[in-house]
Design a binder for these strands. Sequence first.
DNA 1: CAAATGATTCGCT
DNA 2: GCGAATCATTTGG
Length: 203
Amino acid sequence: MKKLSREFYNRDSILVAQDLLGKVLVHQVGGQRLAARIVETEAYMGVIDKAAHSYGGRRTARVEVMYGKPGLTYVFFIYGMYHCFNVVTREEGNPQAVLVRALEPVEGMDQMALNRFVKPYEQLSKAQVKGLTNGPGKLCRALVIDKSCNGTDLCGNTLYLAERPADSFEIVAAKRIGIDYAEEAKDYLWRFYIKGNPYVSVK
DNA sequence: CAAATGATTCGCT
DNA sequence: GCGAATCATTTGG
């Protein structure tokens, strides 16, 4: 599996969001390898995007990493109990990112099951298998992604994204989720997912 | 089945 | 203080 280069992330966030579909997120943790295929993403277009944390050029400690190099992670804490995993896009100083909303488990499913439901994969109900990684908060719990991962370089060796050979699918564009406060920006078709994939959070 | 609700912490005003 | 790029659970039809 070939790791994605820095240049991959230094492009229009909408393109990156689309191209991330089908790629594999790998987290090397506790001697275990957790890997899952990206099936749903959302683009956050920075200063012009009312839904983005960096809208209007807001620059606080929380969003600082979005102003950094492309290929870093932006992990934030939300609703008192969940994390969301993002990939920083564009050059330094241009605060854009792509939110990863859903994954399809590929490797280390047993560990993911323990992380999410505190029981082995074989004992999960059908609904629990689907619920393993089909949402931004869920996938972070399954892959052990939390605040300490914020700012990690995806061009490194513990947390990274890789190419997956011979993968073909259809991409669907849709409205983003959970941003009702964003006025006209909430209707932009900046969410992308793999058509027909059971792990997509909202069809 | 869909819809409403409670959980629970952090970052910002 | 308030509200958040969410989710599990409960409630009601």
